[in-house]
Design a binder for these strands. Sequence first.
RNA 1: GGCCCCGUCGUCUAGUGGCCUAGGACACGGCCCUUUCAAGGCCGCGACACGGGUUCGAAUCCCGUCGGGGUCACCA
Length: 516
Amino acid sequence: MTVRTRFAPSPTGYLHIGGVRTALFNWLFARKHGGQFILRIDDTDQQRNVAEALAPILSGFRWLGIDWDEGAEVGGPHGPYYQSQKSARYQDAVRQLIDKGLAYHDFATPEELKAERESAEKEKRSYLYSRKWLAETPADRARFEAEGRKSTVRLKMPRAGTCRFHDHIRGDMAIDWVSEQDHVIQRADGSCLYNLANVVDDFDMKITHVIRAEEHLSNTARQIFIAQGLGYPLPEYAHVPFVAEPGSKNKLSKRKIAQYLKNQDFKKIYEHGQNIAAVLGLTTSADTFNPVIVDFFEQVGYLPHAIVNYLLLLGWSLDDKTEFFTREEMIKSFSLERVNKAPASYDPSKLWAFQDHHMRALPLADKVERCLPFMHKAGHAADAAKVELIIRAAGDRIKVAGDILDYADFFAPDHALKYDEKAFDKRLRKAPESVRLLTAYKDRLAGIEPFDAAKLEKSVQDFVAAEGTKLEQIIHALRVAVTGKAVGFGLYEALAIVGKQGCVKRIEVALAKIGN
RNA sequence: GGCCCCGUCGUCUAGUGGCCUAGGACACGGCCCUUUCAAGGCCGCGACACGGGUUCGAAUCCCGUCGGGGUCACCA
């Protein structure tokens, strides 16, 4: 039997990092065993704009390279892959359960239910529905309907015995049936609920391994009850611990971004991304553009493989030392048995370290290919050749593709370079000796041929020796004058990239600016 | 609160009775290098939740305690 796994997002409008990890484990498991990975959509018929809310999720998976064999947009032989298109199928399943006496119409009103629950709570007794408005015969139904009541359909759960199943991550599980409620599987309006739909879908799609987040552990017994009632074979289960917040064991939530921003590591990654987004003119808000949402990383220029590699190690490990994996190695090495049982905290600074590593390893041509579009998006008429020079000079300072924007000034018009005023003050305005040297040195630029880093370095050193001064006296002034900034990569590389004419012009502009 | 799950450095983890005076990685601190920044080199800080057993020997097995979390919908 070929392995079939699935991930079933509901269309929420964004792809959450925790969801990606669960999907990744499913994908990896399927790929490892030569099986199929299915992307099914858990929408409900009430939701609107499903297509719109789904688009970022699908594009996120595509960007990450997590591809699916069947499901949304690609179709397949076991569709439909959207819950909203399967109402009749679910209702049919509900009917079967009723016929077998495993489910019943229930005419209780929400108020009556609430009252029962509250009184149970008051008496400190664990709540179990009284089945007071249960209707298994046509006569009962007619009687309740005459009262004007509407019915839901509930599971008639066993009230004795134990449900046992094996979990690939947790081991042998045992849940007492009494602890299970008579869960509603069909609403009063006829639509069906998650637990029912889920089991039917998994069967229809021939899912062999249900790999999902641990919050579904408590759904498992009732789903087994449904599956057995319907005569379906049981899938194998693996409940993955959830991804926790940075520095805590609470479940990571996109609704608590403001709180995470108090975490220094999270804040650093967030602000770095926001800065890039600002340069690109993206309209962003903390709610939708932050390091919990995959789109953030894509927009800022992270490497999808770095994200995947990080997520792989969040709750899973191969051994005590292997950290970096290619796609093939991941697929080959992955196993459910080595997934940890305890939740793992999301650590943005570790993700950053993976990004750093993979970015360093990226061939120059690939870096250019990734960085160039960022220059264009920011409105600079950058050419690949010059961007390549910049990337070569910047080296590992470029951590994400969007960092190329730190060097956008190389494309600024020489007469309109923006200066870091603080650096300008310190290195030029308040440094008359540096200004004198800079003025004198400017005239030497004309004679430098070729105008490359090596010649420039020699030129500056000769000049300093001739003047009997120190390197520091001119170097900082030169950097600020030509690049506008106090920091950057090697000074001589920077000068070479700006070019002879550019350097002369920029120095002139800077000198003229000093008096102002 | 009921039910369930989990518990090794700040974080991710290795560890399945002796290889552990607990290893690696990230982060952090210090020093060196240095024209700035980044990088690099070296050094360092830092954990078996606690208490009882079992055993010659326990991070590893058992019991209890404590702590953290998940879940208890006509959500998924």
